[in-house]
């Protein structure tokens, strides 16, 4: 009998990570680009994914980034983030794209700057 190759993956199945849940209660809270910031440090006894999210989000991080770091599907990360949000350990903030666009300088001004730079 040939020896089977060993498993290099993880024994965790995703439904055990989410506790059996497969979707978030409120799908509007976390967008793909919602910025997440941790509000407290991880405490012992927490789920390891929560610990990693809190560590990652000491600086604001988007949901997709967290998902990429955790190597988990977005749906699972949303469920985890929802748990943390409900416990008050993180805050979520939508990037205000419209406001950011309004704050940008005028394109004419930019053209002038560009022109001035070329003339240097």
């Amino acid at each position: 009998m040939t020896r089977r190759p060993v498993d290099t993956g993880s024994p965790d199945r995703l439904y055990t990570v989410t506790g059996g849940r497969s979707h978030t209660a409120d799908t509007t809270v976390f967008d793909l680009v919602t910025l997440v910031v941790s509000e407290c440090d991880p405490t012992p006894g927490m789920q390891s994914e929560h610990v990693r999210i809190l560590t990652l989000c000491r600086h604001p991080a988007a949901v997709v980034e967290i998902a990429a770091e955790l190597r988990m599907p977005i749906t699972v990360v949303r469920i985890l983030l929802e748990d943390l949000l409900a416990a008050g350990r993180i805050t979520a903030r939508r990037p205000r794209a419209a406001a950011a666009a309004a704050d940008l300088p005028e394109s004419a001004l930019l053209k002038e700057v560009l022109h001035g730079l070329r003339n240097l």
Binding site: R4, V6, D7, T8, S10, P11, D12, R13, Y15, T16, V17, G19, G20, Q47, S48
Partner: peptide, 27 residues
């Protein structure tokens, strides 16, 4: 043999989750 063989240490949390994920009433 068991169906899987791990070549690295598995932390206790994953051990427990891997165990609980195999039963029907894991919730």
């Amino acid at each position: 043999r068991a169906s899987r063989a791990w070549n690295k240490p598995i932390v206790m949390e994953s051990i427990l989750r891997g165990a609980v994920g195999r039963i029907a009433d894991f919730r």
